[in-house]
Design a protein around this nucleic acid. Structure first.
Lengths: 216, 216, 216, 216
DNA sequence: CATGAATGAGTGTTCATTCAT
DNA sequence: AATGAATGAACACTCATTCAT
């Protein structure tokens, strides 16, 4: 890990540079609002079936005005990805986690917080899952880089645990990936589990699999 | 599981009944062809950006004739799901698997064949993941039922291994789900692994995780 | 009136000459059947919303075979007009009428039979009413000529009654037209009357208006 | 009749509420324009053969913009009905009529004005006759209600004349209906009369039939 | 900065008609 | 004579984007 000690992941510079609006703060604030409202609409209707009119109505902006903050419909998608990636990423760097020293305790916290985020943002995560292929290629690269960074962050925690003798893992990167996939699976395939077990039970079972099996 | 000993999963009757064509064989044959060709186009362009004209060109059918075999664009999606679900489902009931008696050997075969299918149909599987929410609700139910059947099939193999003392698994359904998710993850997140390891290595690591960790 | 003493109005030669079928009787018989079945479908669905497929199904003919008896969809319309014009026209020349000598009695018969036909073929009459503008111009002319002939036939009966001193009518053609319109009105606007009176009452009132008022 | 003393018939609220345009006045003004221009095109080409592009061209609106004022092609038909029903309805409540006290004079005015409207809007009236069955059922009901209101308005005038001893009519509603049908007949079957007599002559003959015969 | 009316290319879908069998 | 699969032009309708106010 480089020396990015902040618990905020460095947010990459927004792709859509030139809005016609000069006031930069206003732009950021409105773009955030747009992302939030748009995400809700996308979740309900799907991206392709959501019209710019829908977004305008949901955000309370006039259509022309909306276009002062974006250049194309696609940009709204990017804004949504920006927002929720940040949210997810932040969760894994939260003080709730970094403050813990004991690797096992820490991993439990990571899993617990991960499960909490997954449950809270399940819709948004599934949205991103489904829509990533609609992103402009340049932006898609960024998204994937971000995801790798996320996995590497987890890898770091695991390596740390290995060093301290808490885990026995041959390939920490692979383990981190598996954990990541299992947690994504909770978002996208939650219903598979929850037909049999309660959420709590599911979470416990998953925690067991990760701590006992994956991390030895 | 009833005594469906055939290695072909019972294919549910196609939802889209009334094509305007009277020759039933022709209908089945062309629908299969449409599914295959359409899937390729969907993979390349995405469902929503694929026009009926694209499908017509890809299938070599005139637009009007294409509509003799379907009722709506949506139906093509269903045809694609029908086709590749069948393919995936068949793979887990293949004689290559059912012929094996030793549970460990059998599980290895399951995993190996699963990995092979996942690699062969990665694009189509990802397509189905992304597009399932576009299915008509009635059809979506069928798809989910099918997926559960798939997981239960795996559960059966696991239970069998437990009975024979080969596996130690408290909750075979949960284990089956985890295996399913991990294999799906290979399809949808394969790139995550393959940045670090070769396919072969990845497969071996995954096999290890499943056999040693999940199944004890 | 020329000397067309037959009670069958001379049917003009069918416009659509060349069917590919050689057997003339077969052609006529099938065309009649087509007209009858098609009329029913047109009544139910409207001409424009009725497809050739619908007609084929209704007639029991294969689409290609149907086209052996017509040249274009329009021709079916003409066949329908041919059939029901004949029916209506015949009614006013029926022996039930021509056999009566007393002009007043005769007029009562005309009205009664007119009302009966109107009630029996209301749907078909309204159909013809609504669709006449879709006829090919040449055929439309024939239709209008036929209608005038119908009115003139009535005019002849009126003139006869005037000559015999039974009616006092200045302008028999005008009177005939008014009668024709009132009877058409019964077909197209029947509901207007029948909200207030029974069919029988309506018929009696109408008969009164015609005999007492129009014909003095 | 309540105390609706205005000479404008209360126009029922338009069924097609939500246009995408927010400026209400603009909507009304353009819808009126659309109705007028569309009616002309429908008269020339028939409703079904008129394409939305035709209407767009005729109105000078872009296709998309046209759809800001309507929801479906059908709605244009409704707009046309709305417009010309209003026109017809207003004519029978015009001060030219209501200002007259003497029932005979008044009836003459009604007939004269009716004939004038019928001649002026013959094409539009015929259009409405032919196309009423294409209206959405809910709207058709309104149209029929409106027509009954029209007839009842005439009934009121007749009853008034009866009360004042000017007419001898047993069934004023029936008489009103007959008058209505005769005047409609002038629109739809005018050519029947006008082959023999001038318009003026025809009008006079018709006036005679109505005043002398129908109203005694 | 904000508004919302206007643009028009593009989409899914239908259907009269033909023609090989 | 009869069949029904194939053709493709044409239609109603949508929606991202612009721009005058």
């Amino acid at each position: 890990m480089k020396t990015n000690k902040s618990n905020k992941a460095a947010s990459p510079p927004p792709l859509m540079a030139l809005s016609k609006i000069k006031n930069e703060n206003l732009v950021k604030q409105k773009q955030l609002m747009i992302a939030r409202k748009a995400a809700a609409v996308f979740v309900k209707k799907g991206y392709e079936k959501t019209t710019i009119r829908d977004i305008a109505k949901a955000t309370g902006l006039a259509m022309g005005n909306l276009y002062d903050y974006i250049q194309k419909k696609e940009d709204i998608l990017c804004l949504v990805f920006d927002l929720y990636h940040q949210v997810i990423e932040d969760s894994v760097r939260s003080p709730e986690i970094t403050a813990i020293d004991d690797p096992v305790e820490q991993m439990h916290a990571i899993i617990r917080i991960g499960q909490r985020s997954v449950r809270q943002y399940r819709d948004e995560i599934m949205l991103m899952y489904r829509l990533s292929h609609l992103l402009p290629p340049a932006y898609l690269k960024r998204v994937m880089k971000r995801e790798r960074r996320h996995i590497k962050q987890m890898e770091t925690y695991i390596k740390n645990g290995v060093k301290k003798g808490a885990f026995k893992v041959k390939d920490p990167y692979f383990a981190a990936s598996v954990i990541f996939i299992l947690q994504s699976g909770l978002a996208t395939r939650g219903w598979t589990f929850e037909r049999k077990h309660s959420r709590k039970k599911t979470d416990n079972l998953m925690t067991d699999v990760i701590t006992k099996s994956i991390l030895g």
